[in-house]
Design a protein around this nucleic acid. Structure first.
Lengths: 122, 122
DNA sequence: CGGTTATATGTCCGTCAAGGAATACACAAC
DNA sequence: GTTGTGTATTCCTTGACGGACATATAACCG
């Protein structure tokens, strides 16, 4: 049973992606997240629960506070999922010129290919 | 650029990710996709519509057939979204060793570390 | 023209997820 | 103990989504 499904559905929600973005800056207690995402505290807690069950965040209890932090592993799994597709847009950049005539496609102008070295890419 | 939402919600569905995986191998007509994902033809068409409106796939009409192909751009956008998080797990790999002792943190349940292969699992 | 294949759409229904409000729980301070 | 703060959970309603069936559209073939 892969948590793949819960991972995707967790990130499908814009509020949860906002929370994840907040946690990218630094770990935060729930109160901060509530202010940051503009939701009610119960809603935020529920979203945090979803993120928790998807493995995206991890909690550290600090007195009555619960400090949430990102867990990098699931996002790394996302990246792994993405990997097979990466060659697709690299290839399409190459093939773009010669296909412009046969499909009549407007393509997507420029594909945002990151040339930032992916560091420990195998 | 709020098709970000449709992009995520499109990929949140496992069947649609399966369709996308099918289309990664090669462009396919609907009939092939129907067989490949094991859904009914109407359901498949509806999923294809969602993928189409999310910009993930593109159609080429070949006689009565409609050949669907992946559009790399949205997945590249996903990759761009992922980029800021990439440094996170690179950093955590480095910091993992020295944090193994101070981990007094315990979430509600156990955190599922996926050390799965970086292949197209889905 | 009619008939057949290939795909899309419309409708009904069951299910599930999200948001809000109230409440319960956990810890701390007194 | 009681009170106060921070967070989680429950109940409920509503809206969106997915699936199956039937049907509509479009293109080929004879």
């Amino acid at each position: 049973m892969s948590d793949d499904a819960s991972l995707w559905s967790a990130l499908a929600d814009p509020h949860r992606r906002a929370i994840v973005a907040l946690l990218l800056e630094r770990p935060r207690p729930v109160g901060e997240i509530v202010e940051g995402c503009g939701l009610s505290q119960p809603s935020t807690s529920k979203h945090l629960k979803v993120l928790r069950e998807a493995g995206l965040v991890r909690v550290r209890q600090d007195a009555q506070r619960r400090v949430y932090a990102l867990d990098p592993a699931p996002i790394a799994a996302l990246d792994a999922w993405l990997a097979p597709y990466r060659k697709l847009w690299n290839r399409s950049l190459d093939a773009l010129g010669r296909r412009l005539d046969e499909t009549g496609r407007e393509a997507s102008d420029e594909t945002p290919h990151d040339t930032e070295g992916p560091t420990t890419k195998d």
